[in-house]
Amino acid sequence: MHWFNPLSYLVRREIDRACELSCDEAVIKELDNNGRQGYGDTLIAVAADTKSPKTIVSTTMCEEKKALKERLSAIMKHKGFPIRAIAFSWVLVSAVLCGIVVLGTETVGFP
């Protein structure tokens, strides 16, 4: 519908970037440093392979050197989430849900 809108191209590129980084995080979640290094080497090999057409093995962010560098940097710097961050997120989500329930019952008219 918005094929002519330049903003839609920017949004699509950012969504593709976020998807690639998310997939990388899912893959490397359980890997040690050597496993991450191997995964990064594989990405470099796929990006450097000029023999196979890009339609066979396509990686969205391997088209630009800057994007590949960002992706490899994120892979090597990946750390798990600290327990405090997870606990704080659960508390925050619980507070928001409780607020929604309380405000929702007040607008319906329940005492």
Rank of each mutant, 00 (worst) to 15 (best):
C19G: 00
D41T: 06
S22D: 08
S94N: 08
I86S: 03
P6N: 02
E70Q: 15
I28P: 02
K69H: 11
Y9I: 09
V46Y: 09
T107D: 10
G40Q: 09
P111L: 02
V101C: 06
S8T: 05
G35D: 04
E106T: 03
F110A: 09
A45H: 08
E30R: 12
E30I: 10
I44W: 00
A67D: 15
L10M: 03
R12W: 00
S58H: 12
S52F: 06
E30A: 09
S52M: 06
I15W: 06
W90Q: 11
V108D: 06
D16I: 02
P82M: 10
L21G: 00
A48K: 13
T55L: 04
C23Q: 09
T59E: 09
F88M: 11
E70I: 13
D41H: 08
A47P: 01
S8D: 05
T107V: 09
I100L: 03
H2Y: 05
V46I: 15
K77T: 08
C23D: 13
V27D: 12
K51S: 14
T60M: 11
M1Y: 02
P82G: 06
L103W: 00
G38W: 05
C98L: 15
W3C: 14
E106L: 06
Q37H: 05
I15E: 15
M1T: 07
K66H: 02
S73Y: 04
V102H: 02
K77N: 14
W3I: 15
T50R: 14
V57K: 10
S73W: 01
F4P: 00
D49C: 12
G35E: 07
C19K: 12
E14V: 02
C19E: 09
L103C: 05
T50W: 07
G99T: 06
M1W: 05
D24S: 13
M61P: 04
D32S: 03
F4K: 07
L92T: 14
V27M: 14
D32F: 06
T105I: 09
V96Y: 01
E64F: 08
K79V: 00
Y39I: 07
K79E: 14
E106K: 03
A18T: 10
T60C: 13
E70L: 15
E30N: 15
E25A: 13
A95K: 10
A87T: 05
Q37A: 06
G80D: 07
V11Y: 12
V96G: 02
V11P: 00
A18R: 12
L97E: 01
D16E: 09
K65W: 04
I28R: 09
I44P: 00
P111Q: 03
K79Q: 10
V96Q: 01
R36S: 00
K29D: 13
R17F: 14
G40S: 09
A45K: 15
A48N: 13
N5F: 12
A67F: 06
V108C: 07
A45I: 05
T105L: 14
A74F: 02
A74K: 14
I75Y: 02
F110H: 04
H78D: 08
T107H: 05
A26Y: 01
Y39N: 02
A67V: 01
G104Y: 02
G109Y: 11
I75W: 01
K29P: 04
D41C: 04
K77D: 10
F4D: 04
V27N: 08
F88S: 11
